[in-house]
Amino acid sequence: MSIDSGSGEDLSGLASTLTDSYEEFSVDPLDDWTTRSMVATMVPLLVALSVLQMVSGSVLEAYEEVLLTNPSLLILVPVQIGTAGNLGSIMCSRLSTQLHLGTFEFRLDNPDIRANSGAVLALGLTVFVLVGIAAWAIGQALGGTLTLLEVMTISLMSGMLLAVFVVVVSLVSVYTSYRLGYNPDDITIPVVTNVCDITGVLILFAVVGLVL
């Protein structure tokens, strides 16, 4: 049985074309993990976030008198901001892992997104209850006049509003960094934690203005 030499040449040409196309369009994932690319991405971002932190400090300074008058609120500020940053880090890490595994879909009806969001909100509810009780107790020891109901209301309302904000910002930052071609592991956590600082202060004192 003989093989047509013309067909063999056609198959060889097709194989060569496919190989060249693969080499042209395939991208080594390790190429994105260079020191140069990470520095080029992170330095401008950290500069912008540093400016945002200074704005956050200025906003907080505007409420200095209120904080010194109510020790419970003074305790709530760093704890709530830190807790929001931790919740955001958890959310971003889980979403980034799903993105790298290829299981992340940016849809509201995605069960993974609903599960992660629910877990963050449930964890926030638990933590902010404990934070409210601790802030009231320490505030009383320091001569504060706010009641347990007032402190708990402020802690829960501001904390849960901040937790919802954390979920939204985490989803948007992960999706946006992916669409722009950046590694979410490099971008999302610094963005979420810094944005939550200034937003946490604004939400907290907005709730304080409503409650007191």
Rank of each mutant, 00 (worst) to 15 (best):
M1V: 13
E9M: 10
T19P: 02
S21K: 15
S21G: 03
Y22E: 13
F25P: 04
S26M: 05
W33N: 01
T34F: 06
P44E: 10
L45S: 08
A48P: 08
V51R: 12
L60Q: 07
A62I: 01
V66E: 13
T69C: 00
T69M: 00
L73I: 13
L73P: 11
L76W: 03
V77M: 09
I81T: 00
G82C: 10
L87D: 03
G88H: 09
S89A: 15
M91E: 10
C92Y: 04
L101P: 01
E105I: 11
F106Y: 14
R107E: 11
N110I: 01
P111Y: 13
P111C: 04
G118R: 15
G124A: 09
G124S: 09
L125S: 02
L130V: 14
A135Q: 04
W136L: 02
G139F: 07
Q140Y: 04
G144I: 13
T147A: 10
M152I: 10
M152Y: 03
T153G: 00
L156T: 02
G159F: 15
M160Y: 06
L161V: 09
A163C: 08
V164C: 05
F165T: 07
V168R: 06
V172A: 11
V172D: 01
V174F: 06
L180D: 05
Y182Q: 07
N183I: 12
N183P: 10
P184K: 14
I189K: 01
I189M: 06
T193F: 00
N194E: 06
L202R: 03
F205P: 01
V207G: 02
V208Q: 04
G209H: 14
G209P: 01
V211F: 07
